[in-house]
């Protein structure tokens, strides 16, 4: 899997296309995102949080999106911004989807250990700021910001 890198205003970005149903390559984009962030000089705990967010977003694109989607990661002087976007099917009840334990994962995904209903919660928990917008038939966009510097740099 190949990500494309580019500069956006004051930020450096990398973007990956994720294919619907492509579970065989699941986690490839997020592994590369974490490695790139570490190479960029970010600490393990910070790259880890961003990597977990990217992984949960990536797997939701694979399991739920109609036609795949994108993960974009941009780093500026203060934040890592991770944006996960697809164009359908959208989420009917976002609050319900965010509830730990709620899942509509199909059997093939639960057989592989997905479907705990913890993914969106993990994204929210690892982000300093979290936004989700979703409309049925239009799609879902999730944006997460992770501070580059943490007080507990453990």
């Amino acid at each position: 899997m190949q990500g494309s890198a580019y500069a956006r205003e004051e930020a450096l970005c990398i973007e990956f296309d994720v294919r619907a149903g492509d579970v065989e390559h699941g986690g490839m984009a997020s592994s590369q995102i974490k490695a790139a962030l570490k190479q960029f000089g970010l600490s393990e705990p910070v790259a880890r949080r961003a990597g977990i967010i990217a992984f949960e977003g990536e797997m939701n694109l694979i399991v739920y999106s109609d036609s795949g989607g994108t993960i974009r990661v941009c780093v500026d002087s203060e934040y890592i911004e991770i944006t996960v976007q697809d164009f359908g099917p959208g989420i009917e009840d976002v609050d319900l989807a965010l509830t730990p334990g709620y899942s509509t994962a199909p059997a093939w995904a639960t057989d592989l250990g997905f479907g705990a209903g913890m993914g969106l919660h993990n994204m929210e928990k690892n982000a300093d700021r979290f936004e989700i917008h979703s409309r049925l038939d239009e799609g879902t966009t999730i944006s997460c910001w992770v501070k580059r510097r943490t007080d507990d740099s453990s």
């Binding site: 579970v23 065989e24 390559h25 699941g26 986690g27 490839m28 997020s30 592994s31 974490k34 490695a35 393990e44 880890r48 990597g51 977990i52 990217a54 992984f55 797997m59 592989l112 250990g113």
Partner: peptide
Amino acid sequence: HENVVAVAQVAG
């Protein structure tokens, strides 16, 4: 399956 390697990687 493949995904466990990615999980291990992102989670350190």
